[in-house]
Simulated scan of single mutants.
Amino acid sequence: MATKPKLYYFNGRGRMETIRWLLATAGVEFEEAEYLETRKQYEKLLQDGSLLFQQVPMVEIDGMKMVQTRAILNYIAGKHNLYGKDLKERALIDMYVEATMDLNEIIMHHPLQPPEAKAKHLATIIEKATTRYFPVYEKALKDHGQDFLVGNRFSRADVQLLETILMAEECKPDILSKFPVLQAFKARISNIPTIKKFLQPGSQRKPPLDVKLLPKVLSIFNIGNE
């Protein structure tokens, strides 16, 4: 029996969340091997040589201790047939994914903003989502009239777009109001059985970052103390 992938990260979304999404979508059972709660745990991983570039997320999978988020995601997508049928499709998937991750990163940092900056940062999220990113996906889906972003075949691009749409809706529930094709896409992809299961309460999906967790995260990674 294959060993379940083991995830090493703190108990929150961060850069591990997209990895959780992709594993869950592929129907792969995984376990949170160790939630990082203290700086000492993190230093142990460093001392053990487990973190190639001295950073997490880290995933133990298929006998490897993988780091670097994009490398991990590429491996999972390639292994589970979520990365297109040829090099051209993979290139297009990469373009969509990189843009989605850019938006994801902005949204992910929203809870970290000081109170006086939150309104401006939220406005930036809405502006970029609705004028730079979502129009591209809306047009792509509308123009080719297919269910998925690339090659009428389900791929990691669809998974990561759905994740980011749901994160954007946490910031502004009606953010898709001017994007009917994306609304239909969201409903369609959300009903894929493995994704539907991941979206249910009690799954391994993480909630938005609780600001109360922030001091612990900063302490683990020694941020602000150097």
Score class of each variant (00 low, 15 high):
residue 184 A to T: 08
residue 190 S to R: 03
residue 4 K to N: 13
residue 222 N to L: 06
residue 154 F to S: 01
residue 42 Y to T: 06
residue 190 S to A: 08
residue 24 A to C: 09
residue 133 Y to R: 04
residue 57 P to M: 03
residue 55 Q to C: 02
residue 26 A to F: 11
residue 51 L to I: 04
residue 144 H to S: 13
residue 65 K to C: 02
residue 80 H to Q: 07
residue 164 T to F: 02
residue 147 D to K: 15
residue 31 E to L: 00
residue 100 T to A: 06
residue 108 M to P: 00
residue 170 E to S: 12
residue 1 M to H: 03
residue 195 I to W: 02
residue 29 E to T: 14
residue 125 I to P: 05
residue 147 D to F: 01
residue 39 R to Y: 05
residue 67 V to T: 15
residue 201 P to D: 12
residue 6 K to S: 13
residue 174 D to F: 03
residue 41 Q to D: 12
residue 17 E to D: 14
residue 107 I to R: 02
residue 145 G to E: 10
residue 75 Y to H: 15
residue 26 A to L: 12
residue 182 L to Q: 00
residue 92 L to K: 14
residue 74 N to W: 02
residue 179 F to C: 05
residue 101 M to Q: 10
residue 141 L to A: 07
residue 193 P to S: 01
residue 38 T to L: 13
residue 25 T to R: 03
residue 217 V to M: 15
residue 164 T to N: 10
residue 107 I to T: 02
residue 9 Y to P: 01
residue 151 G to C: 02
residue 60 E to L: 03
residue 225 N to P: 00
residue 89 E to L: 06
residue 27 G to R: 07
residue 190 S to G: 15
residue 19 I to L: 07
residue 120 K to M: 11
residue 29 E to F: 00
residue 106 I to Q: 01
residue 99 A to V: 06
residue 87 L to S: 10
residue 135 P to G: 04
residue 10 F to W: 15
residue 138 E to M: 11
residue 174 D to K: 08
residue 140 A to H: 01
residue 74 N to V: 02
residue 89 E to G: 10
residue 46 L to Q: 15
residue 53 F to V: 09
residue 79 K to H: 11
residue 17 E to Q: 12
residue 194 T to K: 14
residue 79 K to V: 06
residue 194 T to H: 09
residue 16 M to H: 00
residue 209 L to Q: 03
residue 123 A to K: 10
residue 215 P to F: 12
residue 49 G to V: 11
residue 102 D to W: 07
residue 168 A to E: 02
residue 83 Y to R: 04
residue 91 A to M: 09
residue 32 E to K: 02
residue 25 T to Q: 01
residue 29 E to N: 11
residue 189 I to P: 09
residue 20 R to C: 08
residue 162 L to I: 06
